[in-house]
Write a protein that binds this DNA or RNA. Structure first.
Lengths: 201, 201
DNA sequence: GACGATTGGATAGTGTTACTGTCTAATCTG
DNA sequence: CAGATTAGACAGTAACACTATCCAATCGTC
C-alpha cells in the first residue's frame, strides 16, 4: 500500500478513502493485514486523480463513469452513451419543451441521431436558454459553426480509438473527458489571438 | 429587495449573501432601511447565477471576473485576457518547462501570439501532461485539428462582439464562459453520432 | 399615530464534498 | 520478540455556498 502511495503520489489516507468509496478495487488479500496492489490499481488511481483534477468531476460522477468502463457487457458505443449519461449529476432541469423542440429541429437538420434517452439534448437546451435569458442568444449560424467544429474534433477522437474493446472504452472515456480542457483552453487562446487582431479599444 | 428576489427567482437570503460577498453592488439607499435596485442589479444577479450554475464557476472566480468586467479602464482585449487569468483558481501547478516548451513551439508554429503573462500555455501543458501520464498522449495532428476547430469557434465569438466597450466586455465574458457548455455538449453529441456510424462492437 | 410587515445589516448555523486523522487488532520485518 | 506496517472502521476537518435568526429602523395602512 505504501508502495502504491509512493508511486502515485497520493497520500495513504486518501487511497483508503477511495477504497471505501469504491473508486478503487480492493487489492488481493494475502493475509488479514496485507493486500497486494498491482499495476491496474496504480493505473486506476491515476485515472481517478486525473478525472477529478483535470476534468473536474465529482467523485460520485467518477464512480459512475468507472462503473460503465468496467461493465464488460457493454460495447464501445454503449459505454460512450452511458458515460455521457453519468456525467450529469443533477437530473438536468426539465428544459421547457419549446427549447427542446428547437434543439431537436437543429439536430434533425444536421442529420444527428442520438440515443433516445440521451441527456444531451436537454442539456443543450438548458445551456442555450441561459444564454437567451441573459440577452445573448446564439444565432442558428453560430450554433451551426459550433456544431461543425464539434464534428471536426469528434472525428479525430473517434478515428483514433483502438480496436480492442476494453482499451477502446478507456480511451474513449479518457479522450472525451480529459481532452475537454484542451479544447476549451485552445478556444480561449484563439479568442485572445483573434481579439488582438481586431483590436481598437 | 423582495421585488428583486421575485423577478430573479433568487431567495432573499442569497441576495443578501451576494451583497456581502461583493458579487452584487449595493442598491441606492433611500433611507436607512430602504434601498432601491434597478435593472442593472437584476441583470447582474442573473449573470452571477448563470456563471455559477451554467459555467460552474466558484464565487471567488465570479467575483474576479466581474471586477474585470467593471474595470472601466480596460479595453475589450484587456478584459478578455484578465478574465482568462481570473479563471484559474489554483496557481496552475508549475508544469515542467519541457512540456511548456513543447506547447510554445506549437503556438509559434500556428502563429499564435498570446499575452506574456497568460496562464493558458501552462494550463494547456498541464492538460496534455495528464493525458500523457495516463498513456493516452495527444498527437501533434490531433492537437492541430483541435486548434483549427478552436479558431473556427473563436472567430464566430469574436466577430459578433458589439462595438460599445461595456457591451462588448459583457458579451465577451458571457460568450466565452456560457458557450463552453454548448461546445462540449455538441462535441459529445458528435462523438455519439460518429461512434454509432463506426459501430461494430 | 398605532401596528404589523419589510428592510438593511450583522452574525451564526447548515449541508455537502473531499479528504485527513486516530484507533485497533493483526501481521510482517529484523 | 520489538517496532513498524497494514486493513479496516470511525471520527474530525476545511472549504464552499448558502440559509436562518436577530435587531433596530422604517414603511405602508388603517
Amino acid at each position: 500500500m505504501s508502495e502504491l502511495a509512493d508511486r502515485s503520489g497520493v497520500p495513504i489516507p486518501t487511497i483508503k478513502f477511495y477504497l471505501r468509496e469504491q473508486l478503487l478495487p480492493r487489492g488481493q488479500l494475502s493475509s488479514r493485514t496485507q493486500a497486494s496492489y498491482d499495476d491496474s490499481h496504480l493505473r486506476r488511481l491515476r485515472l481517478v486523480r486525473s478525472l477529478v483534477e483535470v476534468a473536474g468531476l465529482r467523485l460520485e460522477v467518477v464512480r459512475r463513469v468507472l462503473a460503465a468502463v468496467d461493465d464488460e457487457a457493454m460495447t464501445r458505443h454503449d459505454v460512450l452513451g452511458r458515460a455521457h449519461s453519468s456525467l450529469s449529476l443533477s437530473p438536468t432541469a426539465p428544459a421547457s419543451s419549446e427549447d427542446l423542440d428547437q434543439v431537436e429541429t437543429s439536430l434533425e437538420q444536421w442529420g444527428w441521431k442520438l440515443h433516445d434517452q440521451s441527456p444531451l439534448p436537454a442539456a443543450l437546451a438548458q445551456a442555450l436558454l441561459a444564454l437567451d435569458s441573459l440577452g445573448h442568444p446564439m444565432s442558428d449560424e453560430a450554433l451551426e459553426a459550433y456544431a461543425k467544429a464539434a464534428v471536426a474534433v469528434a472525428s479525430v477522437d473517434v478515428s483514433q480509438l483502438p480496436v480492442d474493446r476494453s482499451d477502446a472504452v478507456e480511451t474513449a472515456v479518457v479522450g472525451t473527458l480529459l481532452r475537454e480542457p484542451v479544447l476549451l483552453i485552445l478556444r480561449r487562446m484563439a479568442q485572445e489571438v483573434r481579439s488582438g487582431q481586431s483590436q481598437g479599444q
